[in-house]
Design a protein around this nucleic acid. Structure first.
Lengths: 96, 96
DNA sequence: ATAGACTTGTCAGCTATTGGCAAATATACT
DNA sequence: AGTATATTTGCCAATAGCTGACAAGTCTAT
C-alpha cells in the first residue's frame, strides 16, 4: 500500500525534531492517530494537510501531491488495466 | 462526475437491443439499480463487470478500463495537484 | 525498573453506501 | 383520451466501512 505521504510527514517531523506528542494536538488528535497516519493506516483529512505543512514548515503543494498520488496508487493497485486507465484520464484532462 | 463506463454500457445495451429488464436479472439486481449504474449514480461491483461484458458481448478489458478511469477521474476531480500526482504515479509504476 | 516515545488493538459510534420497493415520468401505440 | 411498457426517481432500512478515543503494548535509553 502506497504511503509516500506518511513517510514524508515522518521525515519532516524528525527533521524538525518534533515528537508525535507535539504535533498531534495541532491536528486535534492523539499520538496514536498521528502514528497511524504516518504509517498509512489511517486517512488524514484534507484540511489537516495544510495544518501539517505549517507545523512541519513544508510545502503544502508537495504534501497535497503526495497524498493524492497515494490515493490514486491505492485505487489502481492490482488492477490489470491501470496503465490504460491512467493514460485515458490524462488524455481526457488535456482536452479541456 | 465522470461516467464513461455507464455511458458505454448503455450504448452497448441499446446496440444489442436489450432492455434494463433483460439485463438487470443477470446481475441479480432490479432495473432501478442498473439504471442508476448507467447514469453513474451507483457503483457496479467488479465481478459484475465481467458478467456485463458477457451479456453485452463487449470486451471485458475495455469496460474495466473505463470503470477504472472513472474512479480515478472522480478521485482527482477538483484537485489542484492532480496532474503532478498522476505524473508521480506513472513514474513510480515504471520503476518496477 | 522507570520514563518517554511510539505502536497496536479494540470497539462504540458515526457516516456512507447499498438493496429493494413504490411511485413518478416518459414514450409509444390504439 | 387511456393503456402498456420502459426507465427514472425518491425513499429508507440494512449493511458496510471508517473514525475517535482510550488502554495496553513494545522499544529504547537512562
Amino acid at each position: 500500500m502506497a504511503n509516500q505521504f506518511g513517510e514524508r510527514v515522518r521525515q519532516l517531523r524528525e527533521q524538525q525534531k518534533l515528537f508525535l506528542r507535539q504535533v498531534a494536538p495541532k491536528l486535534e488528535m492523539d499520538t496514536a492517530q498521528l502514528s497511524k497516519i504516518e504509517k498509512g493506516l489511517r486517512q488524514v483529512k484534507k484540511d489537516q494537510i495544510s495544518i501539517l505543512s505549517n507545523v512541519l514548515k513544508a510545502d503544502r503543494n508537495e504534501l497535497s501531491t503526495l497524498w493524492l498520488a497515494d490515493q490514486v496508487a491505492n485505487l489502481i493497485e492490482g488492477e490489470p488495466m491501470a496503465d490504460e486507465a491512467l493514460k485515458m484520464v490524462l488524455k481526457n484532462r488535456k482536452n479541456k
